[in-house]
């Protein structure tokens, strides 16, 4: 399965990068989300896949008896998901604001600051 997920990660990245390079801010933000999905899955897969055993210690025990999923990548991804959401929300708000003043979805129209 990790091979399959590796391919999925590659596809998510490719789609994300391609969308971010389009002349549309909508696609750009969409691509951003794809990239974060790709990154999360990448960390998850690289950390090792274990079917169905969450890293939760059974009551009464002091350690994991059976091989379980690795908790560290999960902790990383959990924060990444929430941070990714905040970044997305900020980009969307920025886009919203920009669209209302410039009336355009094209990043090339937003060059006032770089002239």
């Amino acid at each position: 399965m990790s091979t399959l997920l590796a391919i999925v990660v590659g596809c998510l990245y490719a789609a994300g990068v391609y969308m971010m390079l389009r002349r549309s801010l909508f696609k750009l933000i969409l691509g951003l989300v794809f990239l974060s999905h790709g990154a999360n899955l990448l960390i998850f897969t690289v950390g090792g896949l274990t079917r169905g055993r969450p890293p939760v210690v059974p009551p009464g025990a002091t350690g994991l008896a059976v091989p379980s999923a690795d908790p560290l990548p999960q902790a990383l991804i959990l924060t990444a998901i929430v941070i990714g959401f905040a970044v997305l929300a900020f980009s969307l708000a920025l886009f919203h604001r920009g669209y209302q003043t410039f009336g355009s979805d094209d990043p090339d129209d937003l060059k006032v600051s770089d002239q």
Binding site: A86, A89, A93, H96
Partner: peptide, 16 residues
Amino acid sequence: AVAGVTLLIILPLAEE
């Protein structure tokens, strides 16, 4: 904090 952040983001956008 997470609840507040999520609401602070979504409420103004939904009000637009």
